[in-house]
Amino acid sequence: ENVVSAPMPGKVLRVLVRVGDRVRVGQGLLVLEAMKMENEIPSPRDGVVKRILVKEGEIDDTGQPLIELG
C-alpha cells in the first residue's frame, strides 16, 4: 500500500511528517479531527514520504488519499 487514505471524513489539523522523511510502521503521519476528536493516522508500513497530498486545515472525505509512501 503506497497511498495512505483517510479512514473517516474530517479536518486535517497537523501534518507530522515532511517529504523525504523515513517513517516506520505505526508512526503518526498526520492528525485528523473528526467528531470533535483528534485521531492520529499511522503509517501502514516502513517507507519514505514521497508526497503529501493534503494541507493543514483542509477537509477530507473517507478514502481520500492523504500521503504517498515510497
Rank of each mutant, 00 (worst) to 15 (best):
G57P: 04
L53D: 03
K11V: 10
M8E: 06
G26H: 05
V15A: 00
V23P: 00
L30E: 01
S5R: 15
G26A: 05
P44R: 03
L32C: 06
K50G: 05
P42Y: 11
R14N: 06
K11Y: 09
V3K: 06
D60R: 15
D60A: 15
Q64I: 11
D46A: 11
A34E: 06
R18E: 13
K36N: 15
D21I: 09
L13K: 11
E38N: 08
L66C: 05
L69V: 08
V31F: 03
I67H: 02
E38F: 08
K11R: 12
E1W: 12
V49H: 01
M37T: 12
V31E: 01
V17Q: 00
Q64T: 14
E56M: 10
M8W: 15
I59L: 11
E33W: 15
M35S: 11
A6S: 11
Q27T: 08
V48D: 03
V23E: 02
R45P: 02
V25G: 07
G20I: 04
G10P: 02
G70R: 12
D60L: 15
R14H: 08
G28C: 14
S43T: 04
P7A: 08
G57S: 05
V19Y: 03
V19Q: 08
D21A: 06
V48G: 02
P42A: 12
I59R: 08
I41M: 04
V49N: 02
G10L: 01
V23I: 08
L69Y: 04
E56H: 08
E1H: 13
D46Q: 07
R51C: 10
T62H: 09
R24E: 10
D21C: 08
V49P: 03
S5K: 14
R24H: 13
I41S: 02
G57Y: 05
I41D: 01
K11N: 05
L53T: 03
V3C: 13
K36V: 06
I59K: 07
G47H: 03
G26F: 05
P7R: 07
P65V: 10
L30H: 00
L30V: 13
P44C: 06
L29G: 00
Q64R: 11
L66M: 11
D60E: 15
T62W: 11
V17G: 00
R18S: 13
